[in-house]
């Protein structure tokens, strides 16, 4: 896939004003078109700061000390944890129209674009509703629609489901999956929901104490169980079970392809059973 990166960070250091330690240190990152990258890390590890830095909001809108380089030629959209903090419109339509009006689009263009993004996030027919009266999952999808209204190439999602119940979280993650599969969007999403990240990310980054500790393709990432345990990251049950069954001799050492979901693990188990029965 090695195309030109859409976004690059080189040797980035960032320290918020009046804090004792940097929130990001020595961060190097390349983001390629069509990639979906997960960002995990314990609370206060620097995940939000990393996304704010990738978006350019740091250092532009924050007080602090920035060193290093961030380069991008891509349009970016960002969505925060709590969608309500970014709502300003009384209806979903007003909410989505605001930034398009500011960007000088005509009324016809705005109407057309609003229809398009609402369809994209699965909220067709919601234009006249108040964003504040929607369910958590719907609110977050309005926030994503708003970020998508300018047709950005890169979507940054900062813990988009941490304020949602599991049903709302499922709605948002299936939207991310659809944006990846049908629209080939480049997406960076930070989350504690490692089971979900395992199901759609191409690559995952572990951030701890402001540094990138791991940056690996998804199956390699979750093979680093010891490092994930050290940093208090939840290792999906399927993966932990896989290593346990391998160690117990229930699954063979080879072939070494890390299963990421129940179906993959069950297939490995049933194959191992067949081999065992065949050898008798």
């Amino acid at each position: 896939m090695k195309k030109e990166p859409l976004l690059q960070a080189r040797e980035v250091h960032w320290q918020y004003e009046d804090t004792a330690a940097p929130s990001l240190a020595n961060v190097n990152l390349d983001l390629y078109p069509g990639e979906v990258v997960g960002v995990v890390g314990p609370a206060a590890a620097g995940k939000t700061t990393l996304l704010l830095t990738l978006s350019g909001l740091i250092p532009a809108n924050y007080a602090g000390h920035f060193v290093g380089e961030r380069k991008t030629h891509a349009e970016l959209g960002i969505v925060f944890q709590d969608p309500e903090t970014q709502f300003i419109g009384l209806t979903v339509e007003e909410e989505l129209a605001f930034s398009l009006e500011n960007a000088g689009f005509t009324d016809t263009q705005i109407e057309h674009r609003i229809g398009e993004v609402l369809e994209l996030v699965g909220l067709k027919g919601f234009a006249e509703r108040s964003p504040f009266e929607l369910s958590g999952g719907e609110k977050q999808r309005v926030a994503i629609a708003s970020a998508l209204s300018h047709a950005p190439q890169v979507l940054l999602l900062d813990e988009p489901t941490s304020e949602l119940d599991p049903l709302g979280a499922r709605e948002v993650f299936s939207l991310v999956r659809r944006l990846k599969q049908e629209n080939e969007m480049t997406i960076v999403v930070s989350s504690h929901a490692t089971e979900e990240l395992a199901s759609f990310c191409d690559r995952i980054i572990l951030v701890a104490e402001g540094r990138i500790v791991l940056d690996l393709p998804v199956r390699e990432f979750f093979s680093q169980v010891d490092i994930l345990d050290t940093h208090g990251i939840f290792v999906p049950e399927v993966i932990r079970l896989y290593f346990m069954l391998r160690e117990a001799g229930v699954l063979p050492e080879m072939p070494d392809v890390l299963p990421l979901d129940v179906e993959e693990l069950s297939r490995l188990y049933r194959e191992a059973q067949l081999v065992r029965e065949g050898s008798w």
């Binding site: 049950e237 399927v238 079970l241 129940v262 049933r270």
Partner: peptide, 22 residues
């Protein structure tokens, strides 16, 4: 997931719910 793995692999009931039991 431990339970769903047991189900998908055709294990007999009661399917274990913890790593140790599995």
């Amino acid at each position: 997931a431990i339970y769903r793995f047991g189900k998908a692999s055709g294990l007999a009931d009661p399917i274990p719910l913890t790593y140790a039991a599995m």
